[in-house]
Design a binder for these strands. Structure first.
Length: 835
RNA sequence: GCCGGUGUGAUGGAAUGGUAGACGUGACGGACUCAAAAUCCGUUGGGCGAAUAACCCGUGUGGGUUCGAGUCCCACCACCGGCACCA
């Protein structure tokens, strides 16, 4: 019988849809396992071949867990608010809700086509009012607890999307989505005080089973540094405060720098001798984007503030002060000490402006460049009471001194900024607040949730950057929930990170119309046991959702401090580069490609994109090879964490393997016991496959199954042998195995494969053959192999080794100085000429 | 510049400090076939050989530790990802 994947897949998908073998049961006595994948954004392009990698991996994991007796929650949903849909709607004059609905239908078709064991009854959609009611509810709780606040601030403004972007959405000075330049703009914005959770977001990482690079990236992004604030007396009638991590270098300070945006400058306006010059510098700095100030322009510029003098508390000397845009207003106090001897930026600045460079840490040559010691064992010089101490000793010593003398205090700073939460767009959750002249910002009553998005004529944002909702005066004008007077609704909407910050909770209890998530459901399912997703979400979604979850913990909605017990990450799937130099033969053609495409031409693999024409559509692959082959290949493609390149040939190899498995049905002997010949390879495979799936090493798990099948062909097999293969292969190729399970008669006995809970268990004692081939080395070099009885003692092994003809020859006239025996693996003889 | 990662046959990739190249592509040879496809069985790192005899070389480069190093340590090179004037 031929393996007709198309008919088989349709048959079982329909069966699963009807019988729901993948439904999660809240409260079930079995141990629970909650496996989560990042829900997709339902774009118009449909699923691309990158999606199945993480989806299939978690499907394999959860299918195996189910077979091991777990009550599994493996849900799916759609992150449906967002700019691409809105932009499409604007262009084609279709309501974004309709676009979203159609895209979701297409995604759902494709996901079902791939045979994932999702609990479809728990499917959610963040743009559904029944869902965003609770997104709004959580926002109101944040507001009521003082964590949502409005602030006028300089924000990132995308000139093309006409929308405010979070820092995280600006990549190399351009909009992450559209690539248009990002400029700074003053705007009043809703902010979420994520920085209040900064310490906890770092410290609680220690308890989590996240892959190390995720932890490191989050820590770096939050950027905690501990130092101290030092206060200096000035001749301007007020003190100034700086932040530094290197208080030990205070004796080496030769000037001070203030940020151009610092408000103190305005206060000092009349007493700064060269105010015109300073004002011009400030204006020029304001015109530069952050990108220009940072990336493009590392040359130091600045203006000395005439008449301003700062007293150094440890030397008693007066220091000059400069304004320079290398000092950021948003970090520390906006004023820094200049220590040119031991900070390269300060050195550059001091050299340009002819300021003294004082060496206070020995070990470098500060006339050539700043000396930044690699470790903290360098010794202090020219530093009064610190002289002779190491840097390590000097930092706390100076801190202590500064605190005692009353000019310093210990301080922790973060690079993380509060989260800009407003978007001047239509397709997002309306912010459920109103503004009353008398009462200020007020939450709408929770009974009025969800605050639904009204229908508008046009989705285009206004040129002055107001949301399209601002034009809907009927909707905007309302009454104040506090005093009943006239009030206006907030017209900004939430960013698309809002809905995804808590969606994993909604899956636990998706139809609850009383609460975001019910207490019992959350207590049963939380936390997520294993969450897999892309590295690109490490500093965005992953951090934001940890923040929301911690807040929900604080107000008693959830019972765990952290949402995800375990986090792993997958590599991207790349396509063939059509412009790769390796594709052409002659040198001229190669040079032409390099000339035309530059470094791009040197890469064999590149991101799939429409413009390159190298996009692989899952629909086509399923059509040609079947869903099981696609699933198997995307798992076999290589190390899960690394990027991998799609290869049409290798897909065929996986189809061939499935054919070989299918054809085993024709040759399997009519016997339910394991055949003695195959017993060892079966038990070895159970161990390997079980452990490899848990470790996300799907490629080697599949390789082991291939090895097992090769053995079956070499040795012959029983139906019992085949049963073992079916059980272990079923998470990877569920449709085909379901059919085989039925054809071999097992379904009639124990029900369909999707309902099995007898994942095989290996027996260590049956894993190895009774004989073992081991390596024989002489002086560390491989010289022979011999076969020994399993677990033979050293004496027996050496007897066999010495009996080997080749080894015996090498031993002639030599003395055995030492023998190293690694049990069942290797013997190493150390020989030297006999005396 | 800082942080993290990677470097292995023609190719995707395997290898708790213990026989480098599992498994899969591709290639070559054979069986079946009128023939092809499919399928099945072999061979396939390089050098020197008639040899599936022996020997030598081989995991980015150069050193080191070890009886033994792809794996550990030091220095360097190349590429990929993230952050970047964060005081």
């Amino acid at each position: 019988m031929k393996y007709d994947f198309s008919a088989i897949e349709k048959k079982w998908q329909a069966n699963w849809e009807k019988t729901k073998p993948y439904a999660a049961v809240t409260g079930d006595p079995r141990p629970k396992f909650y496996g989560l994948i990042e829900f997709p954004y339902p774009s118009g392009a449909g699923l691309h071949v990158g999606h199945p990698r993480p989806f299939t991996a978690m499907d394999v994991i959860t299918r195996k867990k189910r077979m091991q007796g777990y009550n599994v929650l493996f849900p799916i949903g759609y992150d449906a608010f967002g700019l691409p849909t809105e932009n499409y709607a604007i262009k084609n004059h279709i309501h974004p809700a309709i676009v979203t609905h159609d895209n979701i239908a297409n995604f759902t078709r494709q996901l079902k086509m791939l045979g994932y064991g999702f609990d479809w009854d728990r499917c959610i959609n963040t743009s559904d009012p029944d869902y965003y009611k609770w997104t709004q509810w959580i926002f109101l709780q944040l507001f009521k607890h003082g964590l949502a606040y409005k602030a006028t601030m300089s924000v990132n403004w995308c000139t093309s999307c006409k929308v405010v972007l979070a820092n995280e959405e600006v990549v190399e000075g351009v909009c992450e989505r559209c690539g248009a330049p990002v400029v700074r703009k003053e705007k009043s914005q809703w902010m979420l005080a994520i920085t209040k959770y900064a310490d906890r977001l770092i410290d609680d990482l220690d308890e989590l089973d996240f892959i190390e690079r995720v932890k490191i990236q989050q820590k770096n992004w939050i950027g905690r540094s501990t130092g101290c604030e030092l206060t200096f007396q000035t001749n301007m009638g007020c003190d100034v405060t700086v932040y530094t991590t290197r208080a030990d270098t205070l004796f080496g300070t030769s000037y001070m720098v203030i940020s151009p945006e610092h408000p103190l400058l305005n206060e000092w306006k009349d007493r700064i001798g060269n105010w015109d010059e300073v004002a011009a510098y400030r204006e020029a700095a304001a015109r530069k984007s952050d990108f220009e100030r940072g990336e493009l322009n590392k040359d130091k510029t600045g203006v000395r503030l005439q008449g301003v003098e700062i007293r150094n508390p440890v030397t008693g000397k007066d220091l000059p002060m400069f304004v320079s845009d290398y000092v950021l207003m948003g970090y520390g106090t906006g004023i820094v000490i200049g220590v040119p001897g031991h900070d390269q930026r300060d050195w550059d600045f001091a050299t340009k402006f002819g300021l003294p460079i004082i060496e206070v840490v020995a070990g470098g040559d500060v006339t050539k460049c700043a000396f930044v010691a690699k470790d903290d064992s360098a010794v202090m010089v020219n530093s009064g009471f610190l002289n002779g101490m190491t840097v390590k000793e000097a930092i706390p010593a100076m801190k202590q001194y500064a605190v005692e003398q009353g000019f310093g205090k210990v301080k922790t700073n973060f690079k993380l900024r509060d989260w800009v939460f407003s978007r001047q767009r239509y397709w997002g959750e309306p912010i459920p607040l109103v503004y009353c002249e008398k009462c200020g910002w007020q939450a709408i009553p929770e009974s009025e949730l969800p605050l639904k998005l009204p229908n508008v004529e046009s989705y285009e944002p206004t040129d002055d950057g107001e949301s399209p909702l601002a034009k809907m005066t009927d909707w905007v004008n309302t009454t104040c929930p506090c005093c009943g007077g006239p009030a206006k609704r907030e017209t900004d909407t939430m960013p698309n990170w809002a809905g995804s910050s808590w969606y994993f909770l909604r899956y636990m209890d998706p139809h609850n119309d009383k609460e975001a998530v019910g207490k019992d459901a959350e207590a049963y399912w939380g936390p997520v046991d294993w969450y897999n997703g892309g590295m690109e979400h490490t500093t965005l979604h992953l951090l934001y959702s940890r923040f929301w979850h911690k807040f929900l913990y604080d107000i008693g909605v959830v019972h765990t401090k952290e949402p995800y017990a375990k986090r792993t990450s997958h590599g991207m799937i790349l396509g063939q580069n059509p412009h790769y130099v390796g594709n052409v033969d002659t040198e001229e053609e190669k040079q032409a490609l390099i000339k035309k495409y530059g470094n791009q031409a040197l890469r064999q693999s590149v991101k799939m994109s429409k413009s390159l024409g190298n996009v692989v559509n899952p629909d086509d692959v399923v059509q040609e090879f079947g869903a099981d082959t696609l699933r198997l290949y995307i798992m076999f493609i290589g190390d899960f964490e690394k990027t991998a390149t799609w290869s049409a040939n290798a897909v065929r190899g996986c189809k061939k393997f499935l054919d070989r498995c299918w054809n085993l049905m024709d040759i399997a002997a009519d016997d339910d016991a394991l055949s003695p010949k195959n017993e060892a390879v079966i038990h070895r495979s159970i161990k390997k496959v079980t452990e490899d799936i848990d470790a996300l090493k799907m490629n080697t798990a599949i390789a082991q199954l291939m090895t097992m099948v090769n053995e079956f062909y070499a040795n012959g097999l029983t139906r019992g042998d085949l049963k073992m293969l079916m059980l272990m292969l079923s998470p990877f190729a569920p449709h085909m195995v379901e059919e085989m399970w039925e054809l071999t008669g097992y379904a009639a006995k124990t029900g369909k494969m999707a309902m099995q809970n007898d994942w095989p268990v290996y027996d260590e004692s049956k894993m190895v053959e009774q004989e073992k081939e081991i390596a024989v080395q002489v002086n560390g070099k491989l010289r022979a192999t011999v076969v020994i009885p399993l677990n033979a003692d050293d004496e027996t092994v050496l007897g066999i080794v010495y009996a080997n003809e080749k080894i015996a020859k090498m031993k002639e006239g030599m003395e055995v100085v030492k023998t190293i025996i690694v049990k069942n693996k290797l013997v190493n003889l150390i020989l030297k000429p006999a005396k």
